[in-house]
């Protein structure tokens, strides 16, 4: 746990806030609203978007062409958020998202980034030896699949649209969303059907 903030730090924060308000840069209410939106955001939002894309071709097309609009359609406030790009996994291509420069992450739809996403180890290794990193996560992709690392270096934020696994035929959106994890939306995992699979 972090140490509690020191009184002089809080005083400095108060002076900064007063200056920002006085200059018309941002109001305290706007900061509170953004904070509330950030706290509310979680990987469940991204999971709901993917589940809908798996069942609704028109929504899938929107998600791939304009992630921000697709998020807003699910009731997510994207005001002031960076553009959201969505990367479509296919049988021939798997995407893995990393930010080698800092820790850019699609917070509006995935919430706060996990600690490992911000670690030097992940940031340096994901871009250089992605298959080794994926194998450590338990994901061994065949050589026939292109691994495409997406380095989130600038103004976009990126989320992966994983492939819908076999054995989910007839599932409704809520049930589909339940197997879409944060890790699958970053690309270090793929959605799996738990328990015994129906006979093929």
């Amino acid at each position: 746990m972090a140490a509690p903030p020191r009184p002089e730090s809080l005083a400095l924060l108060d002076r900064l806030m007063a200056a920002l308000e006085a200059k018309g840069v941002v109001t305290e209410a706007e900061i509170a609203e953004r904070q509330a939106n950030t706290d509310k955001a979680s990987p469940e939002t991204g999971a709901r978007m993917v589940a809908r894309a798996w069942t609704d071709p028109a929504y899938r097309a929107l998600l791939l062409s304009d992630g921000k609009a697709a998020a807003e359609q699910m009731g997510v406030s994207m005001a002031g958020a960076p553009p959201l790009g969505v990367l479509e996994n296919t049988p021939a291509r798997h995407h893995l998202v990393v930010c080698t420069l800092c820790s850019c992450y699609p917070r509006a739809v995935l919430g706060y980034p996990p600690g490992w996403y911000k670690s030097f180890a992940y940031r340096s290794r994901a871009v250089r030896e992605p298959r080794v990193v994926l194998a450590e996560w338990g994901l061994n992709l065949p050589d026939s699949v292109e691994v495409r690392v997406v380095d989130s270096t600038a103004d976009y934020r990126w989320m992966v649209l994983p492939m819908r696994p076999a054995g989910t035929e007839g599932w409704d959106e809520a049930r589909l969303a339940s197997i879409i994890t944060r890790d699958a939306l970053v690309g270090v995992a793929v959605p799996k059907v738990a328990g015994p699979r129906p006979a093929a």
Binding site: V150, D151, T153
Partner: peptide, 24 residues
Amino acid sequence: LYHVLFEQEPIWHEGRPGDTVMVE
């Protein structure tokens, strides 16, 4: 701003041919 695609192998002199990295 562009999305630019690079082959991984020439950058690192390791990795599997055909794997790529896409950067803004």
